[in-house]
Amino acid sequence: MAEKDKAEEAIEPINRLDAKSIALQAMLPGIVSDFKVTINTAFDLVVVAVEPEEIKQICLLLRDNDETAFDYLLLLCVVDYEDYLQVVYHIYSTSLKHTLVVKTNVSPEEPSLESVTPVWKGADWYEREAHDLFGVSFNAHPSLSPLLLYEGFEGFPGRRNYEMPEYKEW
């Protein structure tokens, strides 16, 4: 018995959810039941992994639903896991004060996603940055011109396989 308990403890992911996140975790499956999602936790936040095709609809749903009311985009970033690129959205509700992480995976060859700028205007520059550094293209984005890099820059410096140009002293 004791051994079994120990084994279960070992595989248990770190879970430090506060009351708001626990409530959110319980409420979410009912709200996103129309979509193919997996709900998980990462440290103190609830994580929803979604299909890349459905990202915009889910974001719209999460924003407009009165129980979730995620009206504030905290952070949009891309993480390169070599086999796939993960686009991570940290969203927050200014009225209900809870936070949620939405994740979706895209392939590194031709990564493309639906833009969430119609949902949160604040996604604009984050998506341009992701396009610059990771080469993720966002459909229906107003303009994906280079933001942080200069025009005509080759390669995606945010990715892990990007080779830094060698520094030469003249």
């Binding site: 992911p13 770190i14 990462a42 440290f43 103190d44 952070l75 936070t99």
Partner: peptide, 9 residues
């Protein structure tokens, strides 16, 4: 630090 991810504000 142990494996995992964290967001701090």
């Amino acid at each position: 630090p142990p494996k995992g991810e964290v967001y701090v504000r």
